[in-house]
Design a protein around this nucleic acid. Structure first.
Lengths: 154, 154
DNA sequence: ACAAATATGTTAGATAGCTAGCAGATTGTC
DNA sequence: GACAATCTGCTAGCTATCTAACATATTTGT
């Protein structure tokens, strides 16, 4: 999905959405690289340290990713010893994720990404513009998802 | 880079940029799956069939991706026999990419993604909103890139 | 003319995402 | 109680992206 593809009559919204996403991710990863933590790994740590232990299936909804994707990323954090996966007693299918002491300790050393990067990106932009941007992106996303669903069922 | 991370005072623009990007890519891939072509592979074919043979280094700029990334994706297209890579005579570092007959033939069978998907996503949205969205996303992208550069040089 | 700097492409190894399909656990229905 | 349906997680295999490091080829500068 490249620049000119999405350019044209619709003003390149899609192309800029892509670039903005990758620029944001790159900014996060630049700050996280010294700690050997990826951007989505960061969010999982954030959730587990700030909000407490969380069911894996719950994280799927919070992160809005597929369970297969989460499974792999959680696996990476387990391998690094930063989180633990505990099978639920009542329902043996489910797994609870919780930060290990090492994970909690690492979290304390990490820079405060959530505010720093959002400030860097969006400070000073008018609320009206930001609201318009969200309106456009949200509507486009809903329509694109509907489009894919239709294509898949057909 | 997940939902709540980018939420907060700045209205979740970043989170919606991500979702919109993936929704658009998914819509493309839904239509392309029967043909065994990925979304970025589609753009390369588009360029080579519609605009003619193109230097690999030129495609890096058109697609705004790293040359390592392009190298891999072009490799996949070569493997499938859809494009050819020809070393330039004047400058043996450079390679020209061109569609093979098989690639041109496949292109003719592909659905017209560029208009269909853009219409599906953005039709009927006011120009003012789309312009605001581009303004926000472009500015945020520039700032985030500057942020990363600063972090890397430091 | 030679050495250093720059340009181009590739490979290796990582993150993040998806679908498809498997396996085990739980729930629902007859 | 048994069988089917659903839920949850995992693996395999794919795309797309990045950085780092390497190999060559070309250009620049002394």
């Amino acid at each position: 999905m490249a620049s000119r593809l999405i350019d044209g009559r619709h003003g390149a919204v899609g192309a800029w959405a892509k670039r903005c996403y990758f620029a944001g991710r790159a900014a996060m990863e630049t700050m996280l690289r010294p700690f050997d933590v990826g951007s989505t790994q960061w969010y999982i740590l954030h959730q587990l340290v700030q909000e407490g232990p969380t069911m894996q299936r719950e994280l799927v909804h919070l992160l809005q990713i597929e369970r297969a994707t989460l499974s792999v990323i959680a696996g990476a954090l387990v391998r690094k010893g930063l989180i633990e996966q505990v099978t639920d007693d009542k329902d043996q299918r489910r797994k609870l994720l919780r930060a290990t002491p090492a994970g909690t300790e690492l979290w304390r050393q990490l820079p405060d990404l959530s505010t720093v990067i959002n400030e860097a990106a969006f400070a000073g932009i008018s609320d009206a513009d930001k609201e318009a941007a969200v309106r456009v992106l949200r509507l486009a996303t809903e329509r694109l998802n509907a489009f894919s669903d239709q294509g898949n069922s057909k």
